[in-house]
Every structure is written in C-alpha cells, then in structure tokens.
Design a protein around this nucleic acid. Structure first.
Lengths: 140, 140
DNA sequence: TTGATATTTGCAAATAAGTTGCATTTGTGA
DNA sequence: TCACAAATGCAACTTATTTGCAAATATCAA
C-alpha cells in the first residue's frame, strides 16, 4: 500500500502535478477498480473513505489527469463521461442488461486506420470503439 | 419536395407515429444534412424555417425516433448527443481541429464480434466506432 | 366532413452533469 | 520553516436533458 501510494506520488510528480490527498485517492480508486467510473462514483467513494473532496475539485482533477494523459475519458451512451487509468489500448463490452463493463484488448484496427489515410486522407490520432450487448450472465 | 415529405409521412405512419409538422421538419432537416446534429442545432434550424417547436418537443421527437429505429444517437466526446438518420452502418471521422465530420463505411469488425462471442461469451448487439484526428485541410 | 380520442405539443419547472470566479489553503523547493 | 505557485472549497452558473400537466391536434370511424 505504501509503495503503491509512492508510485502514484511519483507519477504525479513526473507529470508536474502536486501530490494532494484527493489526487492520490482518485488514482488509487481508479487503480483498484476494474471498470471505468464517472465523476459522481469517484466523488461518492472519496466521501466514504473520508478523503472527501468537493465535486468541482473532482472535475478539475479528472480534467487535469486527462490532459496529462494519466486518464482516458470515455463515453458509453449514458450522457456523461467515465474515466479509467490510461494503459494499454483496449475497448469495452457493455452489457445493456446489467451494466457490467468488461475489457477486450487486441482489436486490430490499425489496418483500418491506414486505409482511412489512404482513402480519405484523414489522419487518425485516436479512436473510440465500444461494444454493446449481453454479457454471459444476461444471455439467458 | 412534395414526394419527399410524403415519404417521411409514410415512414412515420409505418412506425405508428403521427405525422406532425415538427416531426416532418426534423426528418427533413436530418435528411438534408450530411453530418450528425445535436438537439440544439435542430431546434435552431426549425426556428429559422418557421417550423418552430419547443425544445422539450425536439427532445421527445428525437427520443421517440431513436426508440423506433429511425435515428441513431451518437456521442463524439462533446458531452451531448448527436443524431443522424439510421441507414447503412458507417462510422465517423471527426476532425479535432475544425470539427468537420465525415463518414466512412466498410469497417469490417463483424469478425471481431465473432471473436468476442468466442473468447468472452459476450453477445454483441451493436457497437460504436469513431475516429478522431485531422481532416485533409487541417493537416497543414 | 365532422367528432371522438389517443397522441403530441408547449410551457414552466426540475434535474443532472459539468464549469467558473474567487478567496483560502496547502504542497513543495529554497 | 518560509514563500509562492498550485490546488481546493464554496457558491453560483451554464448546458443538456427530462418531466408534469393542461391545451392542441392528427387520425380514424361514422
């Protein structure tokens, strides 16, 4: 735990960000959590953990982290953003019945991106790809 | 023009929806328009065309149309929804510099969806795939 | 063509997500 | 341990969207 927090500290410092309790708590919570979370879930968690932070602060932290590349901001058709730690590229399987969110890696769309440059002369910087359907449990 | 409006009438009727002026105007505007539009753009357009409708009405029309499968609801990382006529499957190229939105078809991810069923036992119903980058003009 | 009626709309108020200005507090390097 | 830029809290605000309810209207049958 101590080492984990230290690694978050280091991460923040190497991004020119001060290691404040709220920032450490946000990183730690997103790290513990498998699925992408929205601002309100993070806010609620910090409150429970007595790492309380104002909602404006949470939003500012998330914005800063996305700008620095520590987090990715995602949309799952809910009318709000979710956030996850930036790591290897992957996409999500979103169950429309129970809301469960799984990861998948190894989507191979770099070929497609090359195609796009070719055909449309559009330079792809990034993409979003999410799948909606039914998870194992909800298929019956 | 008259025939076009009649086809929208027919479309609405076959979806068990009354052909109101606002609904016809929304369909017509989205049909004329190449890129997906948000509720406010539609609202503003109808006002200009003197097909004025309340914003709540616009939102309800859009919601109804999506539910009936006439429209697709999209998100481009803007914190709001955009809508386009449902048609052949395609995805979008969103220019991060000028905001221009182009379409691309023929993305081949049905293979990937089969993979997902295989590996994760997740049943994909639909997906969202959007590309962000620089359009031809904005690359220099 | 006219009524009856269920559907749709307008209006106003409410909610949800996210943002902003500003005074105060706090990490951090000297 | 001090100074100061950076970060936070608070409150007010904006933007996107939703909801309740009464009034208006498209449609269908007579």
């Amino acid at each position: 735990m101590i080492t984990l927090m230290n690694s978050f500290r280091t991460l923040l410092q190497s991004s020119d960000l001060k290691a404040t309790p709220a920032r450490l708590a946000v990183l730690s919570f997103l790290d513990n959590n498998k699925s992408p979370l929205d601002a309100d879930a993070i806010f609620a968690h910090l409150r429970e953990e007595h790492d309380e932070a104002d909602k404006a602060t949470i939003y500012r932290i998330l914005e800063t982290f996305v700008a620095k590349g520590l987090l990715k901001r995602l949309e799952f058709g809910e009318g709000k953003y979710r956030y996850e730690l930036a790591g290897d590229d992957h996409h999500h399987l979103i169950c429309e019945n129970c809301g469960k969110i799984e990861d998948i890696s190894d989507c191979n769309i770099s070929d497609l991106e090359a195609d796009i440059k070719q055909k449309k002369n559009f330079l792809v910087k990034r993409h979003s790809l999410e799948f909606y359907g039914l998870c194992q449990n909800c298929q019956r």
